[in-house]
Each structure stands twice: as C-alpha cells, then as structure tokens.
Nucleic acid binder design. Structure first.
Lengths: 251, 251
DNA sequence: CGGACATTTGACAAGCTTCAAGAGAAGTGG
DNA sequence: CCACTTCTCTTGAAGCTTGTCAAATGTCCG
C-alpha cells in the first residue's frame, strides 16, 4: 500500500484510467478510448508471486499491466532461469502468443498486479478498425525490442559490476518516466535472486557485486526501495546512456 | 556466387520477387503487392563487410533484406561487441529507428547484400491504408522478439557448448525454412569472431568449443557451409526445440 | 613468394560459480 | 510473547569455466 498508483486496481472504465493521467503516455481520441474500452474484456488481479502466463501456455491473453511489477522469463530443464525483462505499468504483454508463436516464456507477478485483459483473436480487428492503435502496438513492440537489445549486450558483454549498475539505472529510469519515483526513491520489489536471473549471474556473485556498489556509495537499497546516490558514476560504469523516450503509447 | 538466391539482386518489381516464390512467405493480394512496390523507393546493394546502418545513425531507412546475410550489433567504448541477431533474406529491418528511437545498434553486411529500401516517414500511411500489412509488420517484430528472448537465454544461462550448439541449430533452421539449404548444407558466412560476439564468448574459447563439437561428429563446417551431422544431439545439448513457425509475412 | 587474415593450441590468470554456513528479518503457532 | 520455521542476505573458501596472452599453422590472394 505504499505507492498510490502501484497498488491500485484498474478502474472499470478507461476514461478514468489513472495511468493516462500521469502524462507519460500519448493522447488518444475519445473514439479510440471507447474502442479500447470495448476491446478490453475485463480486469484481473494477480497477487505477488502468482503466474500471469505459464511457460508453453497456448491460450495466453493479450493484456496491459495497469499496476504492479511482473517479469518475463524462460527456464531450462535443470532449473536455470533467465529473466528476459521486467514489466512495469503501461507495458503491453502477450503479443507473441497472439501471433500463434506458442509462448515459450512465462510471466510472473513480482508484486500484486492489476491487469487490463483484452479480447482474444481480435487483434486483427483492432488493426483494421483503428490503424493508429495498431501503429502504437508496433511502437511498443519495437521499443521493447530495444530493451532486449540492451539486455543482450548486458549478459553477453558487460561484467558483473557493469551489469548491476545497468540494471539499477534502467529500472530507476523506467519508474521515473511513468511518475513512480517519489522523494528520489523508486519501489524495488526484486530480491537478489531476481537480479541474478536477470543479469545471468549467480546469486552469490550478485550479492557481492551489489554490496560493493552500495559500499562505494553509488546506491541504497532499503525497505524495498531504490535510491541512486551517484547517477553519473553508475551510468559511466554501465556505459548506459539511455535517451529518455518521448511519450509512450498506452493501450 | 554459390547459392542462386543469396547472391541475387532484387528485381525491379515485386511481382517477380524470387523470395515470394519460395513458398516460405504468406500470400498477399495483388493490391497489397502493388502498394508494397510503391512503398519501396529502391534497391541497394551493399558488399560484404559494408555498413547498412551505423551505430547512432539518425536517419536510417526501413528495408527488407532481399538476399545475403547481415547482423545487428552493439559495441562498447573499449571495443567489446555484441551481435544481437543475424538477418537473413526476408527479414524486415529498421523498425526501431522508424519510431524515432535513435538507432543504438549498427547493422553490417556479412555477405554481399541486396536490400529493398522503403520510404521514410510513411510507415504510418502503410498502417492506415493497408492495415493487413501493418499487422504483418507487427508479426515480424514480435517474431524477432522471440529470437532475442532465446538469445538472451543463451548468453545469460547457457554454457559455451550449449551456446554453440544453439547457434548452429538456430541458423541452420532459419536457412532451411526459407529454402536455402541444399544437399544438407547451408551457407555459413560467419567467422569465429562473429560467433564469439553473438554468443558472448571470447574468440579462443569459441574456437575450442567449436572444435570439440566438430570432433564429436556433431557438425561439419567446411568451405563456408554448415552441415549438421547429429541434429538430435545438438538440440539435446542446446535444449533448443524451436517450433518451426508457419509462413512468415514478407514486405 | 609475401602479406593479411582466420584458425588452432598451449599455458596461465581471472572472474564467476559452487559449496557451506552464519546472521538477519519476517511470519506462524503454541 | 516467545520459540520455531522459513526466507533472504551475507561472507569465506575452493574450484572450474572462461578469458587473456602468445605463437604457430593454415589459407587466400595479389
């Protein structure tokens, strides 16, 4: 019940959507908003630790994360897990399944989540009737691909210190962008195992690396909230200079 | 001049497109084909080693790779390079730039390439006038995201042997899918440095790992062509069971 | 033949993983 | 209210995978 927005449940009609009121998203016409509201079949709540999509699930839905954190992941048979990316409020999820690619990734709630679930099998109708929204969806897919590119550079070429610095910067900036930073701190519901699995590191080494950065005074992680104490140093270490994107589309 | 298709230059009109005749791509209506042809501004040829898109380039074009191989990559200031994915004939390239995200990845030709270049700034018109094509583009973006997910699992959690096995399987299958496998071999223009950079390994370790798999009789790499000698073993090692996708859209 | 470049090998160093175990925090039930 | 459990964080030590350095061999091409 900390962050006002994060713990909120999606309102019944999109005209009252609190996400849109943050000013972080592109404007839509009333007609588009009506369509979106009709396209939405309902609201679902998943509690922390719950499963939004199972690995190999066939009939997964398309939805937008309204509040809370989740993450996409893949696992191997011996239990190794790779977190592919983190999902924050406003993120559209489930495109891959929608196109018939059997979902080979799972999605798990990191905190209590509220979702706007959309109709199955009518994505094509959306493109046909509201090309603008189709365009926006493509924007989102393309933008997420940019995040994956960055993550790939991280796991492929950055060392442990650079990886951790990168992750802290990345998540903080994303939270900031959608107005979820308060008093210089952002909610940070990941535990060290999540961080390790996102960065391709072991739990122990992740701990030691986090510790080192913290002792160097670069960040502070306390009470489930993250504060960046030396943004310059962090971005230099990570070599991560993200151009803060303009307004994002929101479905 | 080996593979008949790979070295071919894109014909002046899309109705004679040899890619479409492979049967690997979804059918389009004559009207759509006309639009595509009008949307295309020209054909460009880039020779092996040349640059299709520079890192940080602002005005990069949208295009489809008609023939040849290329790869997307990112580099760090000290020269570390991560190859994000490989581009094969039929792949659409440049969506990220199109949406204003400054391109933070470069694209380089691995072999001589022939490209169909599309109009700048008219992607929105495409979505508006031919929603079906917009839908297809989103399919492509989503599909590519699936590849990136798999690569992320590779660099994050697979060991060297698994990584190499994964890459060989992945590229062979993609070539097979678009009809570029002949006599059980596929063109394979990567050198070991490319493989290393794609897998997040060092050159030396990549060499030793490749050597081991080859001595085990799992594959053969000769004259720039790849033959898989034990597909079962390779996919078991990599734990990579790709569901061969249906027809792909082609722009 | 000479030069540039890719591949191959060995030896050594290092970063990261694994193993093991203790400390702290938070929730549960008597 | 306190023992007990469980989970997360923390730390040390040892081992292994992978990276780095160096050099030889092979290959292609002018």
């Amino acid at each position: 019940m900390n962050a006002p927005l994060t713990s909120a449940v999606c309102p019944p009609n999109c005209h009252n959507c609190r996400l849109r009121q943050t000013g972080a998203f592109t404007l839509v016409t009333p007609a588009q908003l009506d369509f979106i509201e009709g396209f939405r079949t309902g609201v679902t709540v998943v509690e922390a630790g719950g499963t939004l999509v199972r690995e190999n699930q066939v009939n997964a839905k398309l939805f937008t994360l309204y509040s809370g954190w989740a993450f996409r992941y893949k696992t191997m048979s011996d239990g190794r897990r790779q977190i592919l990316n983190f999902l924050l409020p406003g993120d559209l999820v489930g495109l891959q399944q929608e196109f018939g690619d059997v979902s080979t990734h799972g999605i798990e709630a990191l905190t209590d989540c509220s979702l706007c679930v959309f109709q199955n099998d009518s994505l094509w109708a959306l493109f046909r009737e509201h090309p603008r929204l189709g365009y926006d969806i493509t924007w989102l897919a393309s933008h997420e691909e940019g995040h994956l590119d960055e993550n790939l550079l991280t796991t492929g070429r950055r060392n442990a210190t650079e990886r951790v610095a990168m992750l802290l910067m990345h998540l903080y900036r994303r939270m900031d962008r959608i107005g979820l930073v308060e008093d210089g701190t952002a909610e940070f519901p990941l535990n060290q195992q999540h961080i390790a699995d996102a960065l391709g590191l072991s739990l122990v080494h992740t701990n030691k690396t986090l510790r080192r950065l913290s002792l160097l005074g670069l960040h502070e992680l306390k009470n489930g909230r993250l504060r960046l104490l030396n943004t310059r140093a962090l971005s230099r270490i990570a070599e991560y200079y993200d151009t803060p994107p303009p307004l994002m589309p929101l479905l």
